[in-house]
Simulated assay, not measured.
Amino acid sequence: MATKFQTESRHYVLIIALLLALYASYLLVAPYIGAIVLAFVLSLLCFPVHQYIERKIPGKPNLVASLSCLLLVVVILVPASLVFIAIVQQGIVFTKQSYHWLSTGGAEQLMQHGAVQRTLDYVNQISPAGEISGESIVKQLTEFSSGFGKELLNFSTQLVGDITGLIFGFVLMLFILFFLLRDHEKIVNSLHWIIPLSRSQEEALLSEAKTVARSAVIGSFLTAIAQGIAGGIAIAIVGLPGLFWGTMMAFASFIPAVGTALIWIPACVYLLLTGDWPWALFLAIWGVVVVGSIDNVLRPLLMQGSSGMSTLLIFLSLIGGIQLFGLIGVIYGPIIFALTIVLIRLYTIEFKDFLAQQDKS
């Protein structure tokens, strides 16, 4: 009896010490958790390509992992850098043009439009706040345009100034990715050995984590890219900077409920008020039919592997993940929800007899 008590005591002490050590280890890597998670997700996305290279060059795991990482750099980093430079340049040009239009009286002429005047009169009648005038709107637009240009310049300057941190984060992500690709089998086998569950339960958890991480990235980011491209094409057709606003539309697609409408609706209003109502109608139809259908069709299609999660759960996981973790929450949220569903499913199987007995009592 005493021996059994001593054994159980040692087990509890060991588990408590292990949990404390794991928590301390988490605190050590917490500043770099973004790079770790990104490397994990990229390893899932790149692993089929890595396996293909491994079949072509067998017996050289270090070389294969290095080639996979190098391919990722060429495919992602180089185009992304060129696009980012073009976006900043186009954004600065657009901001200067907007400020020039505002300062030369373009906004005053727009405020004298009959539809604008009727709208302001109606708003002033029903609004409990103070009276809104065209002059105050022009002043606010001028301040916003000037401030937006400064913020854009400050952002690009800050980004260039923080280039050391960006390079460090990217190199750290590549370093982690190298070992995740090279030692994939060892890592999976170690997890199977450490996790105190049956092999079928471990397979269910690990398989779901892989599936959801892959589908979350593909579903969210590819949908954002597709909406940005589709919206940017329409924006360019109507005569506005397509690359800049298309990119803004891609980022806006992550905003729950509003999404890309945050960009194309104001653009439609601007075109309508400036007299280009055919282009405003075209952009509105394009935004609803083309850009909207991408979000309604493509995102659920790409994320359908998420543990049989309903559209409601996917939506809640995305908005909750973004609210709690920021942009990386589009990965964290679905993974947390999906693993919770799998654990509930395993719980119901493991305690089936007990739950049935409780249900009858």
Rank of each mutant, 00 (worst) to 15 (best):
Pro256Ile: 05
Pro256Lys: 01
Ala257Leu: 13
Val258Thr: 06
Val258Pro: 04
Gly259Tyr: 14
Ala261Asp: 12
Leu262Val: 06
Leu262Phe: 10
Ile265Ala: 11
Pro266Glu: 10
Ala267Cys: 13
Ala267Val: 13
Cys268Pro: 08
Cys268Tyr: 08
Val269Asp: 09
Tyr270Pro: 00
Leu271Asp: 02
Leu272Ser: 09
Asp276Ala: 08
Trp277Pro: 05
Pro278Asn: 12
Pro278Lys: 12
Trp279Thr: 11
Ala280Cys: 10
Ala280Met: 10
Ala284Ser: 03
Ala284Asp: 00
Ile285Pro: 06
Ile285Asn: 07
Gly287His: 06
Gly287Gln: 04
Gly287Asp: 05
Val291Ser: 07
Val291Pro: 12
Gly292Phe: 01
Ser293Phe: 12
Ser293His: 12
Ser293Pro: 02
Ile294Trp: 00
Asp295Trp: 00
Asn296Asp: 08
Val297Trp: 13
Val297Pro: 03
Val297His: 04
Leu298Cys: 11
Leu298Arg: 00
Leu298Ser: 10
Arg299Tyr: 15
Pro300Met: 01
Pro300Gly: 02
Leu301Lys: 05
Leu301Val: 08
Met303Pro: 00
Ser306Gln: 13
Ser306Ile: 12
Ser306Tyr: 09
Ser307Tyr: 15
Gly308Lys: 01
Gly308Gln: 10
Leu312Val: 14
Leu313Phe: 00
Leu318Ala: 15
Ile319His: 03
Gly320Ser: 03
Gly321Arg: 02
Ile322Thr: 03
Gln323His: 12
Leu324Lys: 10
Gly326Arg: 03
Ile328Phe: 08
Val330Cys: 07
Val330His: 01
Ile331Tyr: 06
Ile331Gly: 07
Gly333Thr: 02
Ile335Thr: 02
Ile335Asp: 04
Ile336His: 00
Phe337Val: 06
Ala338Thr: 04
Leu339Gln: 00
Thr340Asp: 11
Val342Ile: 12
Ile344Arg: 07
Ile344Ala: 09
Arg345Val: 09
Arg345His: 08
Thr348Ile: 12
Ile349Met: 11
Ile349Asn: 10
Glu350Lys: 14
Phe351His: 05
Phe351Arg: 03
Asp353Gly: 05
Asp353Ser: 12
Asp353Met: 08
Asp353Cys: 00
Asp353Trp: 12
Phe354Ile: 15
Leu355Trp: 13
Leu355Tyr: 13
Ala356Leu: 14
